Simulated assay, not measured.
Amino acid sequence: MTTARTLTVPAPAPEVAMNYFGAELAFEVDPDDLVRDLEAGHTDGYVVVETRAEEAFKAARIPGAINLPYKDMTAETTARLDKRLVYICYCESINCNAATKGALKLAELGFQVKRLSGGITSWIAAGYPVDGPGRTAAIRCAC
């Protein structure tokens, strides 16, 4: 009897899976959850942060997002941010790590952070609202 390739490495014990997936959810936000919150006006407690360059932000951005390119994040450029809030970082897609770099820098500066799964590419593919002309333009990394 041949073992299925998908089961070559056994699944973890339920307790291990709980810890792993619980941690994953602590670090990431689903675009559907975010759009539902935005549409319902549930915007207290977090800020959506575009971590790519300014030109990317101008082309297409999640409504209400602020632009803070990860390359520009310092104690000085983040001094106006409220450390009581959670900062949800996003970038172009899973092929871009600007959101990860931004979340890391913000965490190093003492901020609570999460990352938006899939970036703005997934956001647009799902048909969610976008500010800027980028809905029809090619979305690029622009890190």
Rank of each mutant, 00 (worst) to 15 (best):
A60L: 03
T136H: 13
A126K: 15
L81D: 05
T121C: 05
Q112A: 14
A137Y: 07
P129S: 05
L109K: 09
A125I: 02
P10Y: 00
Y87S: 06
A103S: 15
G102D: 00
E50M: 01
V35I: 15
G41T: 05
L81V: 09
A17F: 10
I62Y: 11
N19W: 05
A60K: 03
K105T: 11
R135V: 14
E92W: 14
I94N: 06
A59C: 09
W123Y: 11
D30L: 12
V47H: 06
T3G: 01
L34H: 07
C89F: 04
L109N: 05
D30Q: 13
M18T: 08
N97Y: 10
Y87F: 12
E54P: 01
A65N: 06
R36A: 15
A60S: 04
E55P: 02
V113A: 06
A98K: 04
F111C: 05
A138H: 11
D82K: 09
V16R: 11
C91I: 06
D82A: 09
D72W: 01
I120S: 06
G132T: 03
A138C: 07
P14A: 13
A142S: 07
V130E: 02
D72I: 01
A107W: 07
I62D: 08
S93P: 00
Y20C: 01
G132P: 02
F21G: 04
A142H: 07
G132I: 03
E108R: 12
E108K: 11
G119W: 04
R84G: 15
A23N: 11
K71T: 14
I124E: 04
R80I: 03
Y70W: 15
A142D: 04
S93C: 01
T3N: 08
I94P: 00
V49T: 00
F27N: 12
V86W: 02
R140W: 10
K71Q: 13
E39M: 14
L81Q: 07
E24P: 00
V47Y: 05
L68H: 05
G132A: 04
D72E: 14
C143L: 13
E50A: 07
T77K: 04
S93G: 00
E15N: 08
V113T: 15
P63A: 03
G45A: 02
A56F: 02
I88K: 00
P69Q: 09
A26E: 14
D37Q: 12
A126T: 00
P14D: 12
R80W: 03
T43W: 01
A23K: 13
V48H: 02
E92P: 01
G64W: 08
D37L: 10
A56V: 04
V86A: 03
A17E: 13
V9L: 12
P133R: 14
A126W: 01
